[in-house]
Design a protein around this nucleic acid. Structure first.
Length: 110
DNA sequence: GAGGTGACGACCC
DNA sequence: TGGGTCGCCACCT
């Protein structure tokens, strides 16, 4: 439907992130064709809490692997979710983020 | 109806 | 090398 916006498209990509993987806001924005819309991706995550089916927003972090949205999950929920998937979090930042990085531009071939 | 805001990222100086 | 600014677009007031 043409009713789908950039916003909705972000959710669709995030839902396809496999278990134990993570990506960045910028990577998603770039995949959607607007690399400069990374802010919008983060904003979409803000609304992910009220979207069905649930969005694994914890698998989306900034390009530094930093859990910028941790506060929005409440407490350290985001960190624990990631650790439960095999991530190593230190100082609110994913260690070896490069190994866990899931790039939709590569994994999701148009 | 218009303006401000925001879980970021890239460019400029 | 590092700090500051702009861009992007949907949502809220």
């Amino acid at each position: 439907m043409d009713k789908y916006t950039f916003f909705q498209n972000v959710f669709d990509v995030v839902r396809q992130i496999p278990y134990g993987k993570a990506t960045s806001y910028g990577a998603i924005a770039k995949y959607l064709g607007s690399a400069k819309s990374s802010r919008m991706v983060g904003y979409a995550m803000n609304a992910s809490h009220q979207v069905i089916p649930p969005i694994p927003a914890h698998r989306v972090v900034n390009r530094n692997g930093l859990l910028t949205g941790k506060h929005h999950f409440g407490g350290n929920t985001m960190q624990e979710l990631l650790e439960a998937e095999g991530f190593t979090i230190e100082n609110n930042q994913i260690q070896n983020f490069d190994k866990h990085f899931w790039d939709p531009n590569v994994e999701l071939v148009l």
